[in-house]
Each structure stands twice: as structure tokens, then as C-alpha cells.
Write a protein that binds this DNA or RNA. Structure first.
Lengths: 347, 347
DNA sequence: TGCAGTTGATTAAACGATTAAGCGCAGCAC
DNA sequence: GTGCTGCGCTTAATCGTTTAATCAACTGCA
């Protein structure tokens, strides 16, 4: 009934070579005292038998599963591919597997997902919360990737600095009136980004912030934002707090016959998959997910290796903010001095 | 040194109640013969102690890890969130965890990723290949989600039928000349979709297919597709084989001053996150990922439960094609009878 | 030669669960 | 009263690995 593991195990190697299991284990792990000749013999034999150690046996003995959990509470988060990829890469470089637990947006579902991970015996986990959910002491080390202003945050992109990059870029192009577009008013990430933009404005520039979440909830995701009207009011730059909103803005403006970047500029955040593909391609700010993932995972791994007692703690890292990188593409250009008389023959 | 698992184990419950470990195990799993009274007593006591069974112990004994692998070889696939979510949901409903293994696009990296999963002892895995990679016999059951025309496919959306839906929709709107836009010529999925569209054309309609992969490789992802010229040639509908290309087409057309849907129609595939958000919102075809995931996972689980010998097989499911659903939004409209004289004042 | 110290291996005890087999006891039939 | 059956529980083996403890043999040194 019970399915046998296919490959050879330590004891098969041991009997086949006429030595004890412990010796084989020591030879392969390089820990105990085994003669060099025997180590060599055992290693080659193990290799030609195609031996792979049983994670189950090892996990049982050591109390470590070699698996990290990844919790993404945000429904179908478009950043997911990048995050998952980066985390998986960093984890597997550190010898860990990654168990995902997507909790469809709900907060209780999130804690359930975390519990599932704990029950599966993960050694630690990476959580990317949407709101500042208190990930209080799951019974394993936890790394939080959100934003530096979130209490308990382990590491994150420097969203504030990213905002400043955008502001500086727009200032350099001569824009005076900037409309910031966000869709989640309670998101620490978006607030940091918006704050960074405002902090980066030069004297003589002003900004206004448009939170579209209520509009989206009432009228649906594809609602009109009324950006043409805003352009008529004198806004020449639309700085979205995410590429999704940037796309929303860009297409709405185009549909209204307003040319980007000739008439107005549009910028985003995150450098999502479509950013280089749309016309005009999107000027945005990229987070260095690989570095963030590496920092998070290594902080986690350090903690796991150091603490014998498997306590639940929020781990900390030396570098808390990873700089974001401005990607200048086509959607941002020199401020049009007379935005109202939008010429349709541009470009 | 070895970190102790925090919670109680079977033997702690057993000694605490003065019974044997086996009895506790039987009581909790409901397998052996235990009196109802004792079962009750053990269950409540286990509950109040907060007992969670050790996956490691169980895995070692039963040879089953209770974990499925998910392999997504496609770099940063924008479908990833949906797939991962659906698979994770289906798997966790079936009592399984999901271990991800993203192999950054490379084929050798893909087999490495598969090996990593096998070494971690997954009981089975779901593979979504980009090209028809032969997933020949990893040493565990494998479910392939690609397209019905792929040999060895387990279950997939009925891309062909999805294509017919698009064709029928465009035919109903009076379109005669359809430009199909794809970016991967070797993709079974895209070929099926294109085939479905062509098969669904009414008499008097014609189609042409534009593969943009070479253009993308040479000129970058955001290259000009020259769609305005195509519109001038008389094409009134642009049927992209993925929402990403649809977005590419939509924004390029808008930028050129061609109005969608007044002048031409644009349709996509997959109903990705931005489809409802862009202006005009995108008419597309949605795959029922939840159903697909459920079928794949349950086929996998059936296979796992039935085969004792852990052999590596491509599992099959009863339902191989899951119908796609046409989502009509704003980007498709009645065919403009005189596309050449595109009036700029539309809308 | 005798003794301490090192080397290279073995022995055995875990880790936590599952499960086949066994055992005492009651009830029942002959 | 004996034999049989079924119930309720225990005993014990097992999965594969790690690792502390042990031990034999050999070395160097007095």
C-alpha cells in the first residue's frame, strides 16, 4: 500500500559497499570522520546509483523541512510573477523550496493560509501583505516585504525614493502641475510613493492626488477617471502609483484624443510586463525584486540557522530599503506649454 | 542543536491520556478500532492541546509528502497569478500544498526545476509548458496544462473553441477582414486559438496572421506593428492571440489616431488583469482556470492514490477541454463600412 | 612495554507518524 | 466447559536520516 521510494537510500549504499549507514551519511555530508579514500568511494557510488536524500527522513530527524512559505494575500497581484520568481530563485540558491499560499484577499483567509504553511512545517516565510496586517508571531520566522514605513517590515523597495525619482524626472521636463493617481488609500506602498513624489516637487510645482478606489468600487474597474477635464485644468503630468493605473490613465487620455507624451505625460510604478509593450511605452520605476528577495531570504535563513528554538519572530535585515530605478520611456516628455489647444496632428 | 518541534506529538497526547500512541493515531485518523468514547476523549484533548500532525513523520512513514509541484517555465507569465491561485486553491482543497518551481524560461533550467521538485518529494506535479516540451517521465505523476492538441496534455482550456467564439462575435458585428496577431509561432496555444478563429470565419470573410515575434526580438517589445497601414488596407478587426498583444495593438492604434471601436475592433484572449481597466475595455475570452485547475489536481490526486508504485506518468482526465467564455466589452463594435476615411472626430 | 591520544569506523538511539500483528476478554454457540 | 469470534487496545516494526557515544586499531612518547 505504502508507496516505496524509488531510489536507493543510505542503507542500500551502505550494504552495497559493506560499510555502515552512519559512515555513508558522514561521507556524504562531510561531517564525521571518514577516510578520504572511503569518502571518495562512497560519493562516486552514491552518484552512480543516483542517490537523492529523502527530505522526509532528514526533516524528521533535523526538525527542518528546507522549505520556505510565500504568502501573497493580494488577489491576482500583477507583481506576483516577479515576486514569486525572485523569491523562488533566492530560496533555491539557498537550498530551500518555496511553498505558496495565496489567500484570496481575505484577512481571515490570510491567517488560515499562514497556518497551513506552518502545519506543513515551513522553516520560515516571506509575507507580502496588502494592508499592514499584523503578522504577529506565527510559530516560525517571518520576513515582511512591504515598505520601510510599515512597522515590522524586513526589507522593501524604497518607494519614497522612487517617488522622488518620478518627481525629479517630471520637474526636469518642465511640468508644473502633477496629478497623482492611486487606487488604495490605505496602502502603505502607495502612500510612500505619493509622499515621495510630493517631497520631490520643486518650488513652483504643485500636485493633487486622485484616489480612484471608490470610483472603481462603484462604477467598475474600467470607470472614467475624468482625466481630460484635469488636463484642461492645467495638469500636464499624470503620475500613477502603479502601472495598472498608469495604463488606465494612458488609454483613457488616448481615447479622449489627448496625445501622450505630446500633450501630457504619464508615468507609472513597478515596470510590469506591459509597460514596454504599450504605445507610447511607459515611463516607470522598477523595484529591484531580485535584491529584495535575496535580502529577505538570507535574513530568514540566517535566523533559521541561528535560532534553535523555532520561535516565531519578525526577522530584520541590515538593508531595509532597496533603491528603485527610473526607467524612462516614451510616455513622458517635455511639458506642453499650452495644453488646452491640443493639436491632433502631433507625432 | 536540532530544533524541537513546538507542539505536542502523538506520544505526548498518548501518555497524557494514559493510552498508547497507536490508539491516538487511530482515533484521530478514524482508521483502526477505537471505542467511540475514547475517540471523543482523544479528539477533544488533541484539539485543546492544539495538536498538528508532523508532515515529516507522516511523509516518512507513508512515502507521501502531501505536496504537489507547480512548474511555470514561462518567464514572468502574466497568467501566473491566476494559475497559481487556482492550482493552490484546488490543491489545498484536496489537502495538498503547492511547491513552485519557476525555471526562468530555459529548457535545461526547466528540467532542473522539475528535478528539484522531485528531490523534495512532491507526490505529483502540474506543468504548464511554453513549448511542447516533452515532460517525459519524471519520477512522479505529471499533469500537463497546455492545449488539447499537445500530445500528453491532461486538461486545458478549449482554445480552439475560444477562437471560434471570437470569430463568431466579429462576424456578427459585420467584420469581413480580420488580422490575427500572435507572438509565438510555435506555441500550441496560440496556434489553436488562431486555428479556431480561422475555422469560425463565415463565407465572405478572410483573415491574415501577423506573427510579431521576430519584430519583437529585433526591435524590442514595444515595436511598431504597422497596424494603421493594415487598417488602411481594409482590416477592421484585430484579433490578438493574447491580451498582451491586444493591448499592444490597442494602444498603437489609438496613438495613430484610429478610434477603437468606432474605426476598428480589437479583441484579446485570457482576460488578464488590465483587460477591464483599459479604455476602451477589452473584449476577450476567458479561460475557466478554476475548473481547469480542479480537473488537473483531481486527476493527479486520483493517480497518486491509486498507484502504489510512484511511477512517473502523464495523467489523463475525463474532460480534456474546458470551454472558454467570451467577454464582450467595449473594444469591439460594428464594423465601420468605410475604414479608410477614418474620421478623427469619432466619439 | 605501557599508556595516552588520534583516527576511522560502528552501534544505537532518536525524530513522529502509520499499521500489521498480537493479546486479553467478553459474548455466544455447540 | 470449550472453542470461536469480534472488540478494544497495545506492542512493535518501519520509513530514512542524523548524531552522540562507543570501540578497535594504530601512533607517538616516555
Amino acid at each position: 500500500m505504502a508507496s516505496q521510494r524509488p531510489g536507493p537510500n543510505l542503507s542500500r549504499i551502505a550494504t552495497s559497499l559493506g560499510v555502515s549507514v552512519a559512515t555513508v551519511s558522514n561521507a556524504l555530508s562531510g561531517k564525521g570522520r571518514v577516510s578520504d579514500a572511503l569518502i571518495e568511494r562512497i560519493r562516486t557510488h552514491a552518484a552512480e546509483l543516483g542517490y537523492v536524500p529523502s527530505q522526509a527522513g532528514r526533516a524528521l530527524r533535523t526538525g527542518r523541512s528546507g522549505v520556505l512559505g510565500l504568502v501573497l494575500p493580494d488577489i491576482a497581484n500583477p507583481l506576483f510573477p516577479k515576486i514569486a520568481q525572485a523569491i523562488e530563485y533566492a530560496a533555491s540558491a539557498a537550498g530551500y523550496g518555496v511553498l505558496i499560499a495565496d489567500s484570496r484577499g481575505d484577512i481571515t483567509a490570510q491567517t488560515e493560509a499562514i497556518n497551513r504553511l506552518v502545519e506543513r512545517g515551513v522553516d520560515g516565510m516571506v509575507v507580502v501583505p496588502r494592508r499592514a496586517t499584523r503578522i504577529s508571531a506565527a510559530s516560525c520566522p517571518v520576513a515582511v516585504i512591504d515598505t520601510a514605513s510599515t512597522p515590522g517590515n524586513t526589507v522593501a523597495a524604497d518607494h519614497w525614493q522612487g517617488g522622488r525619482e518620478i518627481a525629479a524626472h517630471l520637474a526636469g521636463l518642465g511640468h508644473k502641475q502633477i496629478l497623482i493617481i492611486g487606487n488604495n488609500h490605505e496602502s502603505n506602498v502607495q502612500n510612500d510613493r505619493a509622499g515621495g513624489i510630493r517631497a520631490g516637487l520643486q518650488p513652483g510645482m504643485r500636485s493633487e492626488t486622485l484616489w480612484i478606489e471608490r470610483l472603481e468600487n462603484e462604477t467598475g474597474a474600467g470607470c472614467r477617471l475624468g482625466l481630460a477635464e484635469k488636463a484642461r485644468q492645467g495638469f500636464t503630468a499624470f503620475a500613477a502609483l502603479s502601472d495598472l493605473q498608469a495604463l488606465h490613465a494612458l488609454t483613457e487620455l488616448q481615447q479622449e484624443g489627448i496625445s501622450v507624451p505630446a500633450d501630457v505625460s504619464v508615468t507609472g510604478f513597478d515596470d510590469l510586463i506591459w509597460s514596454p509593450v504599450v504605445t507610447p511605452s511607459l515611463t516607470t520605476v522598477r523595484m529591484d525584486m531580485d535584491t529584495i528577495a535575496e535580502i529577505a531570504v538570507s535574513a530568514l535563513v540566517d535566523r533559521i540557522n541561528e535560532s534553535g528554538t523555532r520561535e516565531g519572530v519578525l526577522v530584520t535585515a541590515e538593508t531595509e530599503r532597496v533603491p528603485m530605478q527610473l526607467i524612462i520611456r516614451q510616455s513622458s516628455g517635455l511639458a506642453n506649454p499650452a495644453p488646452k489647444t491640443s493639436e491632433m496632428e502631433n507625432l
